[in-house]
Design a protein around this nucleic acid. Structure first.
Lengths: 207, 207
DNA sequence: TCAAACTGACTGACCAGTCAATCGAGGGGG
DNA sequence: CCCCCTCGATTGACTGGTCAGTCAGTTTGA
């Protein structure tokens, strides 16, 4: 039956997340993944053509969901601050839901300028452009000031979030839910204030 | 003479920067470094005890300079915005001066949450704390608002810069000097606006 | 003459990916 | 109802290649 087969594939992927998170992509052995999955070494190669393709799959699975979230936020007819809040929320919630997967994506793909990152450069940039598009629209509507280029704003926004996540990743302790929520607010608050035109105080929400 | 010896050590370190930047730490061979330096394989082990120790040395050399720059900025009696501008300037200038070294430090150390990054976690955090201290002082003086924790502010600030650098690192093209300067201004401008209390417009400098 | 700088062939360990063999579920024929 | 066949799922020993680090020697310069 296809279900059982699909399950094993999934089991391997989930095991890979744990192993990559724990030991790092370059440092771990394929046999570690097989052991973690409780599966024979060879089976890994039945479902994936290489160690790299496993990381590939994990990254694309998640990143495509994020691109969809960004596109959806952009398409909505809400204030730019709210759009950015949705995106920040999505990323923070991704961390809450599966911190190990986020660790792998950030450490092994997003930030790996050599080897692996290059393969997915286009995908990663798609996310920046999506965010930049939201900023550009806000600028043309006069809500955000124009001294800052949308591309830069997108990088500052995404970079802040990724850095905060990285901080959590480095800490070995779990992060409390309240802290996750607070971080989300602080990120959006700080960056939006930095981007907004002065004399414009849209909602007056101060946490 | 010690000079010649020191020179070869330096030659190896400089070659390592180029090789790590081009191929990545995990992917390159020690023989690549020796070849790039125009030196016999064994000589690398005459000066360094392992491949890792080379990366180690490169990171610490540069990071200690940065920590000094942060401490100096903090100690100066200038406005917090100017302190942060000094730091952002230092980092951007580090990139201008040696993009390959910055690539190596960012990609292989700062962002490598596993293996290597852990070794230097304390050093890396020292930088965040230094920045956080500047923010905390600005808050207690009433210049920055207190809703944002200094630790978060430091991460947002540093994360924005690192992300912009990463963008340059990924682009293969050289970045124009004007763009470097503009980026510096945008980073400091955006983040400081995000952190300042409203109704306070210290210098009115808009680029 | 001595020590430090320097050389590069060699070794031992490691590991990604292969492959021949086994298992087991479904189905068709007797 | 049972047996056997087929084919995908599964197994894990094995191979071929790679490379970090060693070491016994050679050169250099004071």
């Amino acid at each position: 039956m296809t279900t059982a087969a699909t399950d094993k594939r999934r089991v391997i992927l989930d095991a890979a997340v744990r192993v990559f998170a724990r030991q790092g992509f370059h440092t771990c052995r394929v046999s570690d993944i097989a052991d973690e999955a409780g599966v024979a070494y060879g089976l890994v190669y039945h479902y994936f053509s290489s160690k790299e393709q496993i990381l590939d799959t994990l990254f694309l699975e998640r990143w495509d969901v994020m691109l969809a979230a960004i596109a959806e936020a952009d398409a909505s007819h809400r204030a730019p601050e709210e759009k950015l809040e949705t995106i920040a929320g999505f990323i923070v919630d991704s961390y809450r839901h599966d911190p190990e997967l986020m660790k792998v994506i950030i450490v092994e793909v997003t930030r790996a300028a050599n080897t692996f990152g290059l393969t997915h450069l286009a995908k990663i940039r798609e996310a920046y452009s999506g965010i930049a598009a939201i900023v550009a629209k806000a600028q043309s509507e006069g809500r955000f000031r124009s001294e800052v280029t949308p591309e830069f704003a997108a990088q500052a926004f995404y970079g802040s979030i990724e850095q905060v996540l990285t901080g959590w990743i480095f800490d070995s302790v779990d992060v409390a839910d309240a802290e996750l929520e607070h971080a989300k607010t602080m990120i959006v608050d700080t960056i939006c204030r930095g981007l907004e035109r002065r004399g414009l105080d849209p909602a007056g929400e101060s946490a």
